[in-house]
Simulated scan of single mutants.
Amino acid sequence: MPLSRPTRTTPALLTATALIALTACGTSGADTGGAGPGSRATVEVRIPDPGNSGVLALGKKDGSLDKALAKVGAKVRWTGSAGPFAPAAQAMNADQLDIATGSITSGITSLARRPGFKFFTAVAPDGAGEGILVKNGSGIDSVAGLAGRKVAVNQGGTGEYLLLKALARAGVPADRVERVYLRPDQTAAVFNAGKVDAWAVWSTYSVAEIGTETAHFVADGAAIGSDNYSLNAVRTAFAEQHPDIVKALYRYLHDASVQEKKNPDAYLNVFTDAGPTAVNGRAKEVQADFTRKGGTVDPIRPDDIRRFRNVAAFYAQQKVTTTEVDVAPHLLDIEKTP
């Protein structure tokens, strides 16, 4: 469950996610003041706007997030909008953003460059909400049926990982399937127009499609054996300067995610129940069901790291990355943070 559940549907959710439109910042308040009751300045934590659903959306609306952060001398500055992790990683590297959410798959491809961020929380792979989506009546009733077909994926991210993992498990050579690289927010129209035969996708986008009752997973994350964790990342310099703020943010996200899992409806349509960012009807039921089956925001533990390494090794084997990315140096043990 990502840090935010933005537009149209999500534990993560959203409908048309644009590349993060971040405000161009110079030095932020995050690096100019200390934290804590005795500090001279309140520290600003720059986080993408969460949209209409999810833990952060409710925290923004009811003020509970700022209340929690005020205890460590901080407050949120909402900036841009939640979206793909790759541009968010670039924004953290450029000192334009302090916190972002992404998958381990997109995280590994971003770590293959020169990262200026670290991951500090993990949410277990979403066995129910991600997978290979096909249209009802498509004639594709197994992963093997994808051979000779076109499948939409986001390059180097969750979609490409899910497709390659599904094919490997089914014993289908990757070159038997044509990968069509598309931005996630551009794919629904292509999928619904029949220009691709399937879509490797996660709950941010799958909820709306499944909610129309015209599409279904031919294999979900559980069937695929996905190790695709959702992670929260923090800008490295921010984590070094304000470990108490990062720890307070973790506690807030953990506690709120536990409550969201128990009562997902309370975290949907936080600001409006109408329009393109709202989730209604069957899609709302699907989203709530995915959230109940999903994980909570937790510390990164040794078994998680082992599975991260599995993903990194798989990506190298499949030539998504040129080398096997070492994830361990880019992880924070939030339980040991001062």
Rank of each mutant, 00 (worst) to 15 (best):
G51A: 15
A94S: 11
L22H: 03
I99F: 10
S39N: 11
F85E: 01
V43M: 05
S53D: 13
L58H: 06
G34Y: 02
A88G: 02
Q90R: 11
G36A: 09
P50F: 06
I47W: 08
V43R: 04
D95T: 06
R46T: 00
K75V: 03
L19H: 08
M92H: 08
T105V: 14
S39M: 12
V43G: 04
F85Q: 04
P48H: 02
A100P: 00
V45I: 14
A68S: 14
D66Q: 15
G102L: 04
P87H: 04
D31Y: 15
G33E: 01
F85P: 00
G26Y: 11
A57R: 03
A18D: 15
A82D: 04
G26W: 14
A74I: 02
D31G: 07
S106M: 08
L19Q: 08
G63Y: 01
G36S: 06
T101W: 12
K67P: 09
E44T: 04
K75Q: 13
L69S: 00
V45C: 01
D49I: 12
G73R: 11
D62M: 13
A18H: 14
D31K: 15
G33K: 00
S39T: 09
K61C: 13
K60C: 06
S28Y: 05
I20A: 02
A24F: 08
P37M: 11
T27H: 15
T101D: 12
T27P: 02
G29Q: 03
G29S: 01
L56V: 08
K61V: 14
A57T: 02
S64L: 04
V72L: 04
N52H: 12
Q96L: 02
K75E: 10
S64V: 05
D62N: 14
P48R: 00
L97W: 00
T101I: 04
S64Q: 07
T17V: 13
G63M: 11
T101K: 03
A68L: 15
E44S: 10
K71T: 05
V72A: 02
A82L: 06
L69D: 01
T23M: 11
V76F: 10
A74V: 14
M92E: 02
I47Y: 01
T32A: 03
S103Y: 00
S106P: 12
A16H: 11
L58A: 10
A41E: 05
T105Q: 12
V45P: 02
N93D: 10
E44C: 07
V72R: 01
G102R: 00
K67E: 09
A82E: 12
S103E: 08
K75N: 12
N93T: 13
W78F: 10
A74G: 08
D49G: 10
T42A: 09
K71F: 03
Q90Y: 06
T32K: 12
T79S: 06
G80E: 04
G83P: 02
M92G: 05
G38Y: 08
G80N: 10
A70F: 07
A41L: 09
G29P: 05
A89F: 05
G33T: 07
E44M: 09
A70C: 15
A94W: 03
D62S: 06
P87E: 01
R40V: 09
